[in-house]
Nucleic acid binder design. Structure first.
Length: 511
DNA sequence: TTGTGTTTTATTGCCTCC
DNA sequence: GGAGGCAATAAAACACAA
């Protein structure tokens, strides 16, 4: 039994055909698939092909997996959203896209009326998003949760996963954002501020609204961003206010807008504002933590980025290619794999990884995230030891991508026909924008900043009693196959056999 | 250890679109 | 007609309780 999980992957490709027996995909494979799925619900033929190469599965398997994955999402959404359709998460999901569409009759038909999300929109976002300057993209990370701040309903199906990932790796310097701008798909340059996300349509997914802590973080982030446009003495740049009458305000009002500044200020570990919910360190906190961790883990490298915007421009990608503050390289990640209880070390763990690395991860991605960074990164990282280093190479872009992801309830499929049609169109679109854009970009993207959630390992199977929320499901899997080279047919960085025991071997190879 | 329930994977059939 | 996708189904793998 043991071998089935860890070893089967080796023969996955080779023996899969001859051996009809069902074989579980390795956690690494699953993560890669999930990650890819986050950005491409409907991968093109080429994508599948490359992906199959990457993870050592057949295209058929890939297709099947994606198919089932979509069904899974759909089913989950149906189960959750249909009953009442009023649950927090479901409701959020429903309005997630802000398309103004309401949830249809719950559970109606196979056409997934759950939402009216236009896959094209989603895909297109990804597409044009890919074109965004990295810096811009990075900015997005911080703005994902700002939807609530702006007071607008988030309608974007921003996947919690993606956003979470982004949150994770917010090593970008806030200063960057100052100059960063969003390029809309129309080519319009949207100023970076709270409204920018509107332009792009990226808003925190609905469920985020329920995440008070996150909101808090989002608020902080927005403030920080907005703060860029504020002068030291208050008014927005370019806006002159008449001087207040003397004593107009007895007690000095703290300019919350400027707080963000403080947040970014290395000198201050925590903005007073962000100290909110303990459980959910604010975004800013994350930044700090990350910074701290990065600093401790990787020297001043990260700090440099943070403190020096100029670096950001050049290293935007790098920033993201260094999940977890550069991640310490995969070797580090896998370092402990041998000694630690790896996923493959025991059946249960394996299962866990299979499930929780992927899904469990989602469950508490946000909640747990903070703890991950909280000085436990190193220890927690090896939870992913089963992940192929290749995969771990997490492409930053992925994170940056607008993960449309929230497919869960929010993104589930529209109508079959519609979706299909859209799918086709999406494909075309992708081709237009650069065929393998998505997949190629993944090449750079494997970021293992996946939430090394220990909880995942600890987490048990999701029980019915546990709220299975769509958004939960959508947690991100950061593990992604690495398409080292973005050029088509480029040599993958992935070891010849991804399916091989990803743990020790691959890790060592990386080193 | 066994039984039960859940999840995941594989297969098949049908439908839609080009 | 072929390709791609969805849904249904079966079966394996696994988790958990008794």
């Amino acid at each position: 039994m043991e071998e089935s999980s860890g070893v089967h992957s080796e023969e996955n490709k080779s023996s899969m055909d001859k051996d009809r027996k069902r074989r579980l995909k390795t956690p690494a494979q699953v993560m890669a698939l999930e990650k890819f799925y986050d950005d491409h619900k409907y991968p093109t033929e080429e994508m599948k092909s490359q992906l199959s190469e990457q993870i050592g599965l057949t295209e058929k398997q890939i297709s099947g997996w994606f198919c089932h994955r979509r069904l899974k999402d759909k089913k989950l959404f149906r189960d959750e959203a249909c009953p009442s359709g009023r649950q927090d998460h479901s409701g959020a999901v429903i309005q997630d896209r802000g398309s103004g569409l309401v949830q249809d009759s719950c559970g109606s038909t196979k056409h997934g009326d759950y939402r009216h999300i236009d896959p094209r929109e989603v895909e297109s976002r990804r597409l044009y998003r890919n074109d965004f300057p990295a810096a811009d993209l990075t900015y997005e990370h911080a703005t994902h949760y700002t939807g609530t701040v702006s007071g607008t309903d988030n309608t974007s199906s921003e996947s919690s996963s993606s956003s979470q990932d982004r949150l994770f790796c917010q090593t970008e310097d806030p200063d960057d954002r100052e100059n960063s701008r969003y390029l809309t798909h129309n080519g319009v340059i949207a100023p970076i501020n709270a409204t920018s996300e509107k332009v792009i349509g990226y808003k925190p997914s609905g469920y985020l609204k329920v995440k008070g802590e996150i909101e808090n973080a989002a608020v902080t982030a927005v403030k920080r961003q907005l703060g860029r446009h504020y002068r030291e003495d208050g008014p927005l740049l370019g806006v002159e206010f008449q001087p207040l009458p003397p004593g107009a305000f007895e007690s000095p009002i703290r300019n919350t807008i400027r707080e963000p500044y403080y947040v970014g200020n290395p000198s201050l570990p925590h903005s007073p504002d962000i100290s909110g919910p303990e459980r959910q360190p604010s975004l800013s906190n994350d930044l700090y933590i990350e910074r701290e961790n990065c600093g401790s883990m990787h020297g001043s490298d990260n700090q440099d980025k943070i403190s020096h915007p100029q670096f950001k421009q050049n290293s935007t990608v790098l920033n993201h290619t260094k999940p977890f503050c550069k991640q310490n390289s995969f070797s580090d990640l896998y370092e402990d794999s041998a000694g630690e209880t790896t996923v493959y070390s025991n059946k249960r763990n394996q299962r866990m990884s299979g499930k929780h690395d992927v899904e469990g991860m989602r469950t508490d991605a946000i909640a747990n995230r903070h703890t991950h960074y909280d000085g436990k990164i190193a220890s927690e990282l090896h939870d992913y030891d089963n992940v192929s280093p290749n995969i771990i190479h997490m492409s930053e872009k992925v994170k940056l991508k607008p993960s449309i992801l929230i497919r869960k309830p929010c993104e589930s499929v529209d109508t079959d026909t519609e979706e299909r049609g859209l799918s086709m169109r999406m494909k075309k679109k992708e081709k237009v924008n650069g065929k393998l854009k998505g997949i190629k970009e993944y090449g750079n993207q494997v970021n293992l900043k996946m939430h090394p959630t220990k909880e995942m390992m600890v987490a048990k199977r999701v029980r019915p009693d546990l709220p299975k929320t769509g958004y939960v499901k959508k947690a991100s899997f950061t593990g992604m196959p690495t398409w080292k080279h973005r050029s088509k047919g480029s040599v993958m960085e992935i070891p010849s056999s991804f399916s091989e025991d990803e743990t020790a071997e691959t890790s060592s190879s990386l080193e």
